[in-house]
Design a protein around this nucleic acid. Structure first.
Lengths: 220, 220
DNA sequence: ACAATAGTGTCTATAAGACAATATGGT
DNA sequence: ACCATATTGTCTTATAGACACTATTGT
């Protein structure tokens, strides 16, 4: 039986959530868009996480800032070549590390979930699962920080949440929450523009922070 | 490569959370306790959930009231026979349907997680994963109802949460929460004893209910 | 001065947790 | 009457969301 690890790789680009695909050079689903994937290799992979990392190493892509297993799907109908199983991970990248990768396609998540694009296998469904997980966790954790660069403003962080959750958030409440999480530290620098400069922050050591209450968005 | 589906089957018995094991008749790990499991069968299983159900059918066990995929682990060190992958599900059973199953062992979760018992493979670790998931979801959903019988009192439901979370809960808050969930309906019957009878409830159609706020227990 | 965005103060609503009062059966 | 548990009322605290006010830069 064929067992693969598939990566649903997210980035935020121009206020859109995007997922990484490549165009399949050969059948089945020739010319369709597919998720980067690899067969589990008994000789090289000590565990499934190794196989995931090998995807990015083999394709000379950067290493994800965060990754997490989402689901494993298996069945006889997924691949015309026969029974197969895929272990699906979602991976978060900083936009800046993913500039100008030749031969790769970043697709906006929204139209993709609406059914746009020629997508190979059940990969649209796999993206749906990964987006669901990302949205769910973004409601009660600080996961989206991993989609931002080294330094960022609180407004940029809020926008990351808003893009993922697809709902506007209350500014004051958002800032209180992030402040309580004690997740960030000021870098001392600030981002300037045609307005009041914003303080820049970086992640502090600690990892993901979980909250006792979820965010539901606001009316604004 | 060997791909199996493993079941972490929970029940509540005498105010303890227990997991179902059997004793391995042959090597490797002969005589150790192992989780019920089956190899994915290309001919008989259309998907992974089919393989899970086949475990219970093949062993003539009842069907779980609820099941959910937890994680997939894979690696070269898990099984002395070579690289293997296991898709782990947790399954919830009503205590009453699991009485007197010959040849099966229900182990209390607490000592199991403390390292007690001779457990085959990495199955103790798999139980740890499943318990974590069950605890996490019990903090913000109504999942534990699937561990109770047809009819139950609110005190019994609260005790189910308390056993899983291993923390006492506030009675008034718990009842308000369950009431808001609109998950139950009174059966009209009541449970009698040497005290005021308690109203009996049953699950109403709707499935699992998610809350916006998690329970943290109380001082009592 | 004005535009634009950053940052904060304060009010309301909701729900958790604390605690105690009341209700209702068996003995 | 008394015990044990069920059920409910109410107070406090924490946090989300609403909304508006102040702050600080470039033009």
């Amino acid at each position: 039986m064929m067992t693969t690890v598939d990566a649903v790789s997210f980035r935020l680009h121009q206020a859109k959530l995007q997922v990484l695909f490549y165009r399949r050079p050969c059948a089945p689903f020739q010319h369709d868009l597919a998720l980067p994937s690899t067969q589990v290799n008994k000789a090289h992979d000590r565990c499934l996480a190794d196989a995931l990392l090998r995807i990015f190493i083999d394709y000379k892509l950067p290493t994800p800032a965060f990754s997490e297993q989402v689901i494993t799907v298996g069945g006889s109908e997924r691949d015309p070549r026969g029974w197969s199983a895929s272990v699906v991970y979602f991976c978060l990248f900083k936009d800046e590390q993913m500039l100008a990768q030749e031969g790769w396609h970043w697709l906006d998540v929204a139209p993709l979930l609406q059914g746009e694009g020629e997508i190979a296998f059940d990969h649209r469904q796999l993206v749906t699962h990964a987006v669901e997980r990302l949205k769910m966790k973004s409601r009660y954790s600080t996961l989206p920080v991993y989609l931002l660069g080294e330094e960022f403003t609180l407004s940029e962080l809020q926008q990351a949440f808003e893009v993922i959750l697809d709902v506007p958030l209350n500014r004051a409440a958002f800032r209180r929450r992030i402040s309580r999480a004690n997740l960030l530290e000021e870098t001392g620098n600030s981002r300037t523009g045609n307005q009041r400069p914003a303080a820049l922050y970086r992640r502090r050591g600690s990892g993901e922070v979980l909250f006792d209450q979820v965010m539901n968005g606001c009316a604004q």
